[in-house]
Design a protein around this nucleic acid. Structure first.
Lengths: 226, 226
DNA sequence: TGTTAATATTAAAAAATTGTAAACTCGGGC
DNA sequence: GCCCGAGTTTACAATTTTTTAATATTAACA
């Protein structure tokens, strides 16, 4: 089962929807709690400390939007994922929701399949620990979840190995990564490749980025500088 | 060189294998001792105090398994890494080897590259030692993880040997390091270089730092002062 | 003060390491 | 099959580091 152990809180004022979603998410292995309005949601959130909260925008007591805003002011919920549910086609709502700190939104009527897929995606994205976080180093941006690198808003396409190598180096700017260390982290423990392989990849990264951000430390390794 | 200073004991009853592995590991910078059977291995282990022991499972006198068990009963070898070598595909042997306290195993026929990679991995894992700590001595700062030296906020670029030599001297200010000691620690035990080599490096360090922080003790060696 | 052994300095040779271009491998898509 | 691209290897040039060798200087001591 997929969602093993992850806790989800669903807040919606329509019992039918609540039931359907709870049923489906539970079946996926998530631990599901429900709330019937905004205040209830805030309460249950504090008590159960969910990994992800699904909020209907239209709710009594407090709207999903308000709940979202309140949650985001509390450090306790800084990392908590929030998914907005809305019956409105109104784009401005979506945008406002995202601005308020929601991580995703899904339109009503909700298809359980779509919801499960989005929930899975969100959890997965936040789950791959720090390695999925977007890195910004000066004019360089690295987005591991999207596999994208930008230099001064210019997007650069890197091959997989190149990307992983750059990602490794940027993960600890200034630290010298020994060639062996690099082989380990990027190529894996028992993969055997020649020594020049690293150089060639470094070269391609330097070339593609058009940026001198990787220093050679002769006889030792490479380090990212800014 | 990578495996600087680390001691490895290889025990195998096949001279050919012994020779190949010794050659390759030595070339990586390890200090290698060999043993031709189980008893020999136990003896040499006590004498040389290796950081890692490579044991063939099938050996005369005592099997690798037995050697492993005996070693593990002695506190002296509690931290010593043990890598098992086996011609058997028998999974149960692997498992038993690991249960007995081996840290890893490699199947025969052994590829030197694979072995080197595994050995490196094992040593690295156990290695997170103090050598990564930033040293500050007055207006001098040495950061081994970044391979950087600064004097009064001015960054000085040292080559590898220069850096290692400075790092060694700085690690114990005031202590006089004999020329032999220096050769051992920085160049490795069996590297043969002339005596003037040290002088030349010392000179370069003094020159680059622009700081008189290394004292000559005539007829003895050098020491770091502040 | 002169002698001597040890170290400092310097330049040049040797070795090691990396940069680079080009070729090769291998799997997937057409 | 053929082509393409990622990944790797190869071979060699370019560069830097390390070592050597030759000479100068220094410190210790008779």
């Amino acid at each position: 089962m997929e969602g093993k152990g992850k806790k989800i809180l669903i807040a919606d004022d329509e019992p039918d929807i609540l039931e359907v979603l709870q049923y489906n998410l539970t079946r996926e292995g998530y631990e599901v709690t429900t709330a019937k309005d905004g205040d209830d949601a805030l309460n249950k959130a504090k008590i159960t400390q969910p990994d992800l909260i699904i909020l209907d925008i239209m709710m009594p007591k407090k709207s999903g939007m308000e709940v979202c805003e309140i949650l985001r002011t509390q450090p306790m919920f800084h990392e908590t994922l929030i998914l907005m549910l809305t019956a409105l086609n109104d784009e401005s709502f979506h945008i406002k929701g995202l601005e308020n700190g929601a991580d995703d939104y899904v339109n009503k009527p909700v298809s359980p399949k779509v919801l499960i897929s989005r929930v899975g995606a969100l959890l997965r994205r936040s789950n791959k620990d720090a390695s999925e976080k977007i890195l910004k180093r000066g004019n360089l941006t690295i987005d591991p979840s999207r596999f994208e690198v930008t230099v001064d808003d210019r997007q650069v396409v890197l091959a997989k190995k190149e990307f992983e190598l750059l990602h490794l180096l940027t993960s600890r700017p200034g630290k010298v990564f020994l060639r062996n260390e690099i082989l380990h982290q990027v190529w894996g423990n028992d993969v055997i490749v020649g020594d020049r392989t690293i150089d060639v990849h470094i070269r391609k990264i330097r070339q593609k980025l058009g940026l001198y951000c990787i220093n050679t430390v002769k006889g030792v390794g490479y380090k990212f500088v800014n």
